[in-house]
Design a binder for these strands. Structure first.
Lengths: 226, 226
DNA sequence: GACCATAATATGGTCAGACCATACAGGAAA
DNA sequence: TTTCCTGTATGGTCTGACCATATTATGGTC
């Protein structure tokens, strides 16, 4: 005996079906809440709950008012949803920092190797390193550090991996700032960044991957003292 | 000028704050919808929208009725949220199958290497291989195939990576069934599975990783003909 | 005709209240 | 003690109203 599906779940299913069947993509517009409610024979509140879920998953974006940009518009923002997901589950202690950092290590080694293979442009990396050197606070340093590492992930050409990377960084932003403050001196981190960039510029995937691994050990010494 | 926050967003923020500040974790219970609405000075519908979002992110689970299990209970199911996220964005064409498969390749190579290093128990893998051999349909084959590959990810000991793996598989379930049907013969896939399992049992990380890579090329030939 | 102020309208955002469905709690009856 | 019924707390849903916002239509003014 399966539980009776709730009304908003049926709305979700039908909207997803429309997206797939009609080939809707980012920028296309959904009917208004009142119209959807009438079409699907449910109350407006059920439609709204379904839209909130889609919004939390980065699939729609709602805008009041009138005109072509108003109403529920399909979007493609998997990133914010991933960030919320990770942050909440870290808060719930259903994920440990160690697991997040290990995942980041896996992704970043992979992405750095791909970037080196592809001979990616390293000018954005150099700019981030310079910005980190000029940073006046741990927060500012971490901001540019995030940009540096996300640029590597984006250079891999895989949007899913780049989105996961961005979300991993954003969700542990607080821990990263604390780690930098605890470390005090960022020279060792900057030396790592230079090594990573040099290996990518030299087109050496293995060196890039190893440099990333060494960097994370320096950034999170407490996780690697085994 | 930032947009005025919506009521349900304020509810979300306050619930997240309670989780972090009070150290709430899976199994703990939230106040009832009516009570939350009164505490936060919003309407019940706003509370419900916030709860739907949290539910879609795998953070709470709602249950009607009365007693200790009723109401909104904190859960820890990042998996289903990830699955929905990936499936919807694949449907929206904001992610390509190629990106999902590449991500899976990255994860599974990593997980297989870790499992081999750790000398993981391979009896579950053997059982899945046997079940695949006995499968009467492509759907059934894919089901046990998913179990096989998820078992490898779980053997890595990282719950986040295991959850991502499970979600990647679930979100492309339909494509996987079609790929198996197109392939017709599953002998080559089964030979790959045996190779992967043997490499893990032998404790050879590089061989395990390479066997996984070869397997995915066989499973998605159209993505690798470059 | 061109331009600007105002009104109409469509849309999401929010709330209050009502009612139903569900599942446990506790008392009543066997 | 066991069984059954009723009460009740909880989520699930709908309706209707009203507000906020942004576009569009209208009409007056130059």
């Amino acid at each position: 005996m399966t539980r009776k599906p709730r009304a908003f779940e049926s709305v979700l299913a039908q909207i997803e079906r429309r997206i797939v069947d009609d080939g809707l993509t980012a920028g296309d517009r959904l009917p208004g809440e009142r119209q959807l409610a009438e079409q699907l024979q449910v109350g407006r509140s059920s439609v709204r709950e379904a839209l909130r879920v889609l919004e939390s998953l980065g699939v729609v974006s709602s805008q009041a008012g009138r005109g072509p940009d108003a109403g529920a518009v399909l979007t493609a923002r998997p990133g914010s949803a991933l960030t919320d997901l990770l942050r909440l589950h870290l808060g719930l202690a259903s994920l440990e920092l160690r697991e997040v950092v290990d995942t980041r290590l896996m992704i970043e080694r992979w992405a750095a190797a791909r970037a080196a293979e592809a001979g990616a442009d390293t000018s954005a990396l150099a700019a981030s390193i310079a910005a980190m050197a000029a940073a006046a606070s741990a927060e500012e340093f971490v901001e540019h550090d995030t940009a540096f590492h996300c640029a590597i992930a984006e250079a891999s050409g895989n949007r899913l991996i780049a989105a996961i990377m961005r979300s991993l960084r954003d969700s542990v932003r607080r821990h990263a700032v604390e780690a930098v403050e605890r470390l005090g001196d960022t020279a060792v981190l900057q030396a790592d960044h230079e090594r990573i960039m040099a290996a990518i510029a030299a087109g050496d995937p293995d060196a890039a991957s190893d440099a990333v691994a060494a960097h994370l050990e320096h950034a999170y010494p407490e996780l690697f003292r085994g």
